[in-house]
Design a protein around this nucleic acid. Structure first.
Lengths: 342, 342
DNA sequence: ATGAAAGCGCTAACAC
DNA sequence: GTGTTAGCGCTTTCAT
């Protein structure tokens, strides 16, 4: 069917091994033979069978990337970054989505290991170390991205989420807001740290941390808008409602804004809103959304670079943590429109 | 290192083949042996080496999906749909992005073929049949999604793009608009057909097709917003500017609206705007965007189902075309707000 | 510089 | 029911 090494070898009257060497730029082949082989390879449009090569060599020149949700553009950007770096190094990316289900994530890990990936990059939706058992046992190098798992000692690339929280909150404080709420998530590192950043900022500026102003909800990733609406709606039921909200992500912020306007509150005059993630459309929303950018692309790149260096054993498995500083992007939802925009 | 069939066989004092049979539910194994094998397999947490299995069996239980751009949520949804179907049938999805570069797409095709995928699903960014040569030669079944390629006789799953164009245009006509413009793309089937649908609708309703109202641009996928702004800006330079615009996609429409408002024109009172694709945030934009929904998820599902049936040789390679009817979603950008929204 | 032999982990075809 | 024998297409090691 497909052209094999053997075919080329027989064509040229040389051994299969010689052809193999030429294809992998191994020494020990005469210049003339090399030329002949290369010529024939091109003519026949030979394509090495990577299954066979991987099986024989023990490495597949591939890296797996598991994300919790591809539809979330953050992870799509991470994938793009990783893909670019890997491509440059002649590695292939196997991309899988866990659909925010820990069980699926475990399955995907198994699948990718079964296919012999040389390393794994994971933005995990698990909150414990259980699902990583067979990964650890397999000795396959791995890098966590975006979300880290307590007690997992491997390498990590992510945003400095404490900085995200404090940066956003300080921005609101700087605008003179006195009752700053937070709509956040649960369980995963990004939520926990953004909340910590929020608290840090309040404390550092002498503002009290009011428990009733912190609304923690599940499902902020997939159903961010709806969850944001409901959380905001709860916050509005307080006797004194907040004058600013720092939301876990942009989707949540969109929901919050929708809820505020439905309640005839002006953004940002009555309540300022800031999100996180800087979605492509955040600038074009009903109220252009202030947000904290996380350099998703770069995170993917760095994770891939780290993975490659682990494969090459340039670093020991005990991992480095690489934290990428976030960037504040102020738009109308916090600072209003300086000039009338209509 | 990892557990192999051989290890289990030796452990139990049976032959390797017996173990293999048990694992693949093949007949010809006694109930007691089967039980013993299964037990040991679980204990050792055995995971079949898919590289070896694929090489030996000639099939990999995997399907490749190549999309032009993962960050575009349409394709992420397609991937999600395909992934779900494949997972249900114990197939694995290998997802790759071509970044809208035909050359990269060819490379990805080669890579996936080299890894022995059983079928390929492609939302192609090529506009000719050249890049498909080795795919065709490999006899690997394939399905095109979203965009089809002239002269490629394989199977296709996509939106009925003529219906997209006529549906959107007729919606604008129904609103009494008399100078309906179109901002469209080039070269690929989706653009061409949406334009045809637009023309059909105008003709069917006795409106003239004015060349100056059709603005065709490249780069509507990646840089849709910027391109939309520029195209709209050109349309506004006409002596009599349009009173409605049907845009190739939602991103383009976002750009168009931005441009209109910057020029102090009201949407939809002065100019109605409709897009296509129904992005998640389209409802929450500065002007909630009317659009045509394409059931991306379903397209992915159908493409995967078709791919699986091709693998099973249930259908002959000469393909079916499956067109999924689009759905119109009317929002403020065309019909305005019935009730005051502020 | 070149090639023969062994083997990667598995499946398929056929014996017993 | 169970096992034996050949591969799948490649790389690796070690002779020549």
């Amino acid at each position: 069917m497909a052209v094999r090494l053997k075919d080329i070898a027989e064509d040229l009257g040389v051994s299969l091994v010689t052809v193999s060497k030429v294809l992998r730029d191994k020494p020990g082949v005469g210049e003339t033979t090399r030329k002949r082989v290369l010529k024939r390879v091109k003519e026949l449009n030979y394509r090495p069978n990577m299954l066979a090569r991987s099986l024989a060599s023990g490495q597949s020149c591939s890296v797996g990337l598991i994300v919790p949700d591809l539809v979330h553009s953050f992870f799509a950007e991470v994938a793009r970054g990783a893909s670019a770096v890997l491509r440059r190094e002649s590695y292939q990316l196997f991309l899988a989505s866990a659909e925010e289900e820990p069980e699926l994530e475990q399955q995907e890990i198994e699948h990718l290991l079964a296919r012999g990936v040389d390393a794994l990059i994971i933005a995990s939706c698990q909150n414990n170390t259980r699902g990583f058992k067979s990964l650890l046992k397999s000795k396959t190098p791995y890098v966590l991205v975006d979300r880290y798992i307590q007690k997992l000692s491997g390498s990590f690339v992510g945003t400095d989420d404490i900085a995200v929280g404090s940066m956003a909150t300080e921005h609101l404080i700087g605008l003179g807001r006195k009752r700053i709420a937070h709509i956040g998530g649960e369980q995963i590192s990004t939520s926990i740290e953004r909340l910590n950043g929020y608290k840090n900022a309040l404390e550092a500026n002498g503002q009290p941390i009011r428990r009733e102003l912190v609304a923690l909800r599940a499902g902020l990733e997939e159903a961010g808008i709806e969850t944001g609406i409901r959380a905001m709606s709860d916050l509005l039921r307080l006797r004194k409602h907040p004058d600013a909200v720092f939301c876990y992500n942009d989707l949540t912020a969109v929901g919050a804004i929708r809820c505020l306007r439905a309640n005839r509150l002006r953004v940002p005059e009555d309540v300022a809103v800031i999100g996180c993630g800087n979605l492509r459309l955040s600038e074009y929303l009903e109220v252009p959304l202030s947000t904290v950018d996380q350099s998703a692309r770069q995170q993917g790149e760095e994770a891939a670079i780290l993975a490659l260096s682990l494969i090459a054993r340039e670093r020991k498995p005990r991992g480095r943590h690489l934290l990428i500083p976030p960037k504040l992007i102020a738009r109308e939802s916090t600072i209003g429109c300086e000039h009338d925009s209509n």
